[in-house]
């Protein structure tokens, strides 16, 4: 289990990185935290000709809060975001999801951009990004593009990033007052990828749900938003029955994949359970935060 032969470059700045990417296109792989890419290399499932190591690019690990958006540089380590007060206060759903990613030692290296560029459908951050309608800033020699989350995820471990583009930043809208969140998941063991995960966010205004966001991990080849359930929730007051009904709507049309860790049927059931529990937890959280 040794990495295949490869060339390595550690560009000094983003421009140099973009030059290399533009030249090699999909012959090159960007190396961020390496927590997904290096296992793939060790298993020789990936064989890029060149690794472009972006760990030295300080400009990609900035965090800034402006105009209702929290912009997170792609190279921001997961543990840094996890420990950030700005993240906890402005994007609580992201803060709730981060501790569930792997283990401390994984989060020491793993990055926000890496997780979202890798786009594992069972991962936490893609579901969070989809639920919150995050925006992805990608850059190439031709300039920047901003891609909304709904368009970002493009199949199993695939995104709409072009091979010459670097993900430089992800922007999350900050939570409105009265918002409660929960990230719940069922995994085989603590720290494992979720069999099914749920990102849930409810905004309550005067006891009424004014915004509802639900996105699943692990039920398809990309994260899945539960729009029908969201529509049902908005305008209602939280109640057990409402959440039951939301669970039915959220899962009615799911057609999850089966694998060693759970059948399609199992995933569907657990997804419904998570909606019920997640909405309750988010509603409780909204109460706590207000």
């Amino acid at each position: 289990m040794k990495l295949p032969y490869l060339e390595y470059a550690a560009p000094a700045d983003v421009t140099e990185a973009l030059g290399l990417l533009g030249e090699l296109q999909d012959e090159a792989s960007v190396l961020a935290g390496g927590q997904s890419l290096i296992p793939l290399l060790a298993l020789r499932l990936a064989r890029p000709a060149l690794l472009i190591d972006i760990n030295g690019l300080r400009e990609l690990s900035r965090l800034s809060l402006t105009d209702g958006w929290l912009a997170i540089g792609a190279m921001t380590r997961e543990y840094v975001a996890e420990e950030s007060l700005a993240v906890a206060e402005s994007v609580p759903l992201l803060a709730a999801a981060l501790p569930l990613i792997g283990h401390e030692a994984i989060r020491s290296r793993g990055t926000i951009g890496g997780s979202l560029a890798h786009a594992d459908p069972a991962a936490e951050l893609p579901a969070v990004a989809l639920a919150l309608d995050a925006e992805f800033v990608v850059r190439s020699r031709d300039g920047d593009r901003i891609i909304p989350a709904v368009e970002w995820f493009d199949g199993y471990l695939a995104t709409s990033r072009r091979p010459d583009e670097l993900l430089v930043e992800v922007r999350f809208p900050t939570a409105r007052p009265g918002t409660g969140v929960a990230f719940l998941e069922v995994a085989r063991r603590h720290g494992d990828f979720a069999i099914v995960g749920l990102a849930a966010s409810l905004t309550l205004t005067g006891g009424q749900i004014t915004d509802a966001r639900l996105a699943f991990a692990g039920v398809s080849d990309i994260p899945v938003r539960a729009a029908e359930a969201e529509n049902l929730l908005v305008g209602e007051r939280p109640s057990r029955n409402l959440f039951e009904e939301a669970a039915v709507r959220a899962t009615a049309r799911l057609n999850p994949p089966a694998d060693l860790h759970g059948s399609a049927e199992y995933r569907k059931k657990v997804a419904a359970t998570l909606v019920r529990r997640g909405l309750q937890a988010a509603a409780d959280n909204a109460d706590e935060r207000s």
Binding site: Y8, G34, Q35, D53, A105, S108, R109
Partner: peptide, 10 residues
């Protein structure tokens, strides 16, 4: 703490 199998020596 990091996993030294998931980090390159370089």
């Amino acid at each position: 703490e990091v996993r030294s199998c998931l980090m390159l020596a370089v």
